[in-house]
């Protein structure tokens, strides 16, 4: 997963990357994430920001070796080695890819939740974003708009 993001683009997308803000279609209620200009289901263009719970289930995963990681993750793999990347079905519907943290043996179907982590640092600017950690069923922030 290459992930270079310019500083202006990073700033524009912070609400999604760190606050898990998506869009709910005013016509068909489908939720899109990352947010887009039009509904992915009905192409409706009237959308309302919605906060996603970050909770979902792991649909697929792969392991990226230290040698296979994109250059922006070099500092991370130097300290922590390779990492898992997963495809997660969020409970609100959207499927998103993200790194998996604190897992050694990921299992398809396991509950996960989004956590804020450092993605990488470039030009002295740390990029933060969500990754997915095992969801143990502990208390979670309430869902809401």
């Amino acid at each position: 997963m290459g992930a270079h993001v310019s500083v202006p683009m990073y700033r524009r997308t912070l609400a999604a990357r760190v606050g898990l803000e998506g869009r709910r279609c005013d016509r068909c209620s489908a939720v899109s994430f990352p947010p887009r200009g039009a509904c992915g289901q009905c192409r409706g263009r009237s959308l309302t920001p919605v906060r996603l719970s970050g909770v979902g289930t792991l649909q697929a995963w792969t392991y990226i070796t230290a040698a296979g990681a994109p250059p922006e993750f070099a500092a991370q793999v130097r300290r922590d080695g390779g990492y898992h990347v997963g495809l997660v079905a969020l409970q609100e519907g959207p499927r998103v890819a993200g790194q998996l943290v604190d897992v050694s043996d990921p299992e398809i179907g396991q509950p996960v939740r989004a956590v804020v982590r450092r993605l990488y640092e470039e030009e002295g600017v740390v990029r933060y974003g969500f990754k997915f950690a095992p969801h143990m069923g502990e208390q979670l922030p309430a869902e809401g708009v």
Binding site: A75, D80, V116, R117, Y128
Partner: peptide
């Protein structure tokens, strides 16, 4: 802390 954690990610968690 993991390589992708810092004081701000710990605070957020």
């Amino acid at each position: 802390a993991a390589a992708d954690e810092d004081a701000l990610t710990l605070a957020a968690a």
